[in-house]
Design a protein around this nucleic acid. Structure first.
Lengths: 197, 197
DNA sequence: CCTAGTTGCGACAGTAGTGTTGCAACTAGG
DNA sequence: CCTAGTTGCAACACTACTGTCGCAACTAGG
């Protein structure tokens, strides 16, 4: 967010590698940090195939790197929710679509997306924005009879988030639509037989 | 597990404070580490109200402290599941009882209980043992018509674990039975209205 | 009172990670 | 060819945490 903000050709870097290096480092950071949140800069650099000093040239501090990563993921997260039109599409459709879109981003960016409470206010805003849209969607779903009238919507949202999280951990990375179906189906029907509870 | 193993009066320590200090430290460690898994020995010592050196006297290394904590929690975890008679009680009853018992332990020992994969083989054994009993319980539940016949039991277990985890995070620490009811109800019925899915 | 067990405190060495700097080398646009 | 931008490498200072030690002080059983 703070790097490389010049217009495409306003500058003329001898090599455009720098920007690509930043991407490579961010991707490596996500991979390494999702496996071990306490991983060192050395490990991240190694995973990116660059020297540790290069990482420090692009990101002043470790926190700056993680902030950048978090902001980048938050952006994609917000966009993914937007694309699903959660405010206008029919509740059930929106629920499926939001789930599928979010899963697509969250698989591969799980570490960064779980950092909802970073210092960055912009990131916090995205996450609270998503949360609010999620809540409104659930209200619409309840009004439409998709969710039980007596459901605790706070609990519902937590369960929903948890199911999405679990879905991203599946060993076989099934396609996004299948996972979304699984999540929504589990969320709404549970795993019980319809019969006598 | 490695400390203080003499018979009650075989030894005669001038002060029995030592054993109590160990308890105090373990409780403080759980509190501090659940808030920040990377917390230092200094923070743990401060939370326990003792000097850092005292912690090191009781636990040779940081890992030893965490292993002790993990083992202690695993023991309680295994016992909690045992007491619910998950193999013999009717599936639905067992499910409720296991949930309630586990919640009671997990609230307050969440950090230690989440460490299913510590180096300690004894701890790993407890957790795999619990997992197996959970799986068998789910099979019985499915055979009894409590869980849908076409349910993916691996997914079911993950969802179940996740729901228990979420339940322990509730702001208002409602009583264990109410939480267990919430978890089991959500697991089996989801949050959807029975109607047209 | 004497003594063993325990604790706090201060000091220390060792380790691992962070962040900075200078320099040589490489590469592609001009 | 020249040069700006980039990179790797080695070195360095700095910080935080870990683990150990010795000593003085306190406390309770004998």
């Amino acid at each position: 967010m703070t790097q490389q903000e010049q217009a495409p050709s306003a500058r003329r870097p001898r090599r455009a590698d720098a920007e690509r290096t930043v991407r490579t480092i961010l991707e490596a950071a996500e991979r390494v940090l999702s496996a071990d949140p306490a991983a060192s800069m050395e490990q991240i650099a190694a995973a990116a195939g660059v020297a540790r000093t290069t990482v420090h040239r692009r990101f002043a501090t470790r926190d700056a790197l993680i902030d950048e990563l978090t902001g980048w993921a938050a952006q994609r997260f917000g966009d993914a929710v937007d694309r699903a039109r959660p405010e206008t599409a029919p509740p059930l459709v929106a629920l499926y679509q939001v789930t599928a879109n979010v899963l697509e981003v969250k698989i591969g960016w799980g570490f960064a997306m779980d950092r909802a409470f970073s210092g960055d206010p912009q990131v916090a805003e995205v996450h609270t924005g998503v949360r609010e849209r999620c809540d409104r969607l659930f209200v619409r779903a309840r009004d439409a009879g998709v969710i039980r009238a007596d459901a605790d919507l706070d609990w519902a949202r937590r369960v929903y988030y948890a199911l999405i999280h679990e879905a991203t951990l599946r060993p076989e990375p099934a396609d996004t639509d299948a996972l979304a179906t699984l999540v929504v189906d589990t969320l709404l029907r549970g795993i019980g037989a319809g019969g006598g509870l």
